[in-house]
Nucleic acid binder design. Structure first.
Lengths: 227, 227
DNA sequence: TATACTAACTAACATTCGTTAGGCAAAATT
DNA sequence: AATTTTGCCTAACGAATGTTAGTTAGTATA
C-alpha cells in the first residue's frame, strides 16, 4: 500500500473542513493549520483554493455518471431504477464528506466549471427521468410527474452520506437496497394488505361453493394471519 | 395592506442572497448594494449579520415544530404521517428561499443558537420517528429502521423548495399529498398488480368449475388487460 | 559533486470583511 | 416649536482573506 501523497492528504483534509464549515467559511489558514503547515505552503501543492473544491466535486460527478452507463437494457424499469439507485447510494456513501461537499458546495465553483458541473448533474438526473418515464409507459410505475419523482427519489437517497458511516457495520449496498425498496414499494405494509385481499377472495369462493363448512373457512383465515 | 417594513424587506433581500450565494460568501456590502444603501446603514436595522440568519432559520423551525403539535391522536399512523408530511411540505414551500437557507446555512449560526437549532431539528425528527414506530407496531408500516426512514422521507420532501414555485400554479398541498403518496405507497404500480392477482384467482375458479368454456375465459383475461 | 527540484518557511501584498463612530436631514414625537 | 428618533451617509478601524515572492534546507538527479 503506497503512502498517500501529500496532495491527496491535503484534499482529504480540505474535504473534511469544507464539509464541516463550508467552502467559503474555511480559510486557507484553517486548512493549513489542520494540515500542519503554513498557509503559503499549500501553494506548493495546489494552484489555488478552488482547485481543492474542483477535485472534490468533479471526480464524484464523473463516477456517478459512469455508474449509470452500463445499466443492462434488458431489465425491467423497476430493476433498472433499483440498480441506478444502488449505484448512486454506493458512490455517495463511499466517501460521505466528499459527497456532502459535492451536494452543497459546488456553487462556489467559478465559471465555466460551475456551469459544467450543473450540466453534468442535469444529464445525470435525465437518466433517472428516462427510467421513470419508461416505467410509466410499461405500466410498472404510477403516472406521476417524472421530474418531481426524480428529484424526490434522489433527494431521499442523498440523505445517506449525512448519517452513513462505514464503521457502523452496515453495507452500503444493503442501505441502497433498503432505501430503493422504500421508494419503489413504499413504506406501507402492502404485503399484508395483499394477503388479506386474497384471503377475502378465498372466502367468497368458499361461500359461493356452498360447502357450508364455516369452521374450515375460519381456519383458513387464522392461517393467513399468523404469517 | 401595510407597506413592508424596512427590516422585513432587508430580511427578504438577505434570504434571497443567502440562498443564492450562501451566508458566508454573501458580504454585508453585497447585501447593502442589493438593498440600495451603504453597508454601514444596515446596522440601523440590525445588530449584526447573524441576526439576519437567525431570523430566517428560527421562525421556520418554530412553524415546522408547531405544525406537528396538533396532529389528531385518533388517526391511523398512515394518516398521521400523511398529515405530518403535508404540514412539512406546506411550510417549506411557503417561502422556498427561506427554506433552502434554513436547510443549508444554519451551521453558520454561532453558539448557543446553533445547538438550539439542532436540538429543535432533532426533536422535530423525533416526532416523525414516533409516528413511524407506531405505524410499525400497528402493522401499517414495514419494519424498517425508523431513523433511516425518517431521514429519507424528510430528505425526499426537502427537495420541494428547490423546484417549487407558487407561480407555477401548483398547490403546495397537492405537491405534499403527491410526495407523501409516493413515499407511503411507493412508485410501483401496485393497483395493477393487485388486479392481476385477482384475475389469476378468478381464472383458477373457472377451471375448477369445469365449465369448459375456454372462450369465456379468454374474454375475461382480455378484459383485465385493457384496464 | 554540482545542479535542480521539492516542500517548507517568513514577510508581505492588495483586497475584503464586519462593524463602529460621528454627522446630517427628514420624520416623528413631545 | 423644540426635541428626539430614524435612517441614511462618510470615514475609518482591526482583522481576515487568498495569494505572491523570496529564502532555505533537504532530497533527487545528472
Amino acid at each position: 500500500m503506497a503512502p498517500k501523497s501529500r496532495k491527496a492528504a491535503l484534499e482529504q483534509q480540505a474535504t473534511s473542513l469544507f464539509r464541516d464549515k463550508g467552502y467559503a467559511a474555511t480559510s486557507m489558514r484553517d486548512l493549513a493549520t489542520h494540515f500542519g503547515v503554513e498557509a503559503a505552503s499549500l501553494y506548493s501543492h495546489i494552484r489555488n483554493k478552488e482547485e481543492l473544491l474542483y477535485n472534490i466535486c468533479f471526480p464524484l460527478a464523473q463516477d456517478l455518471f459512469s455508474g449509470l452507463e452500463n445499466l443492462p437494457k434488458d431489465l425491467s424499469a423497476t430493476e433498472r431504477l433499483l440498480q441506478a439507485l444502488i449505484s448512486h447510494v454506493t458512490l455517495i456513501t463511499r466517501s460521505p464528506d466528499q459527497s456532502i461537499v459535492f451536494l452543497q458546495e459546488y456553487r462556489h465553483l467559478s465559471e465555466p466549471a460551475r456551469t459544467e458541473f450543473l450540466n453534468m448533474r442535469k444529464a445525470y438526473e435525465q437518466k433517472f427521468k428516462l427510467i421513470i418515464r419508461q416505467g410509466i409507459r410499461s405500466g410498472e410505475f404510477r403516472k406521476i410527474d417524472e421530474k418531481i419523482t426524480t428529484l424526490a427519489l434522489l433527494s431521499a437517497v442523498n440523505s445517506t452520506p449525512y448519517w452513513f458511516r462505514k464503521e457502523s457495520g452496515l453495507e452500503a449496498s444493503w442501505v441502497a437496497t433498503l432505501l430503493s425498496d422504500i421508494l419503489i414499494h413504499g413504506l406501507s405494509n402492502k404485503t399484508k394488505s395483499l394477503q388479506e385481499s386474497e384471503g377475502q377472495v378465498r372466502r367468497k369462493v368458499a361461500l359461493r361453493k356452498g360447502v357450508g363448512k364455516v369452521e374450515k373457512i375460519t381456519k383458513t383465515k387464522t392461517s393467513t394471519k399468523t404469517k
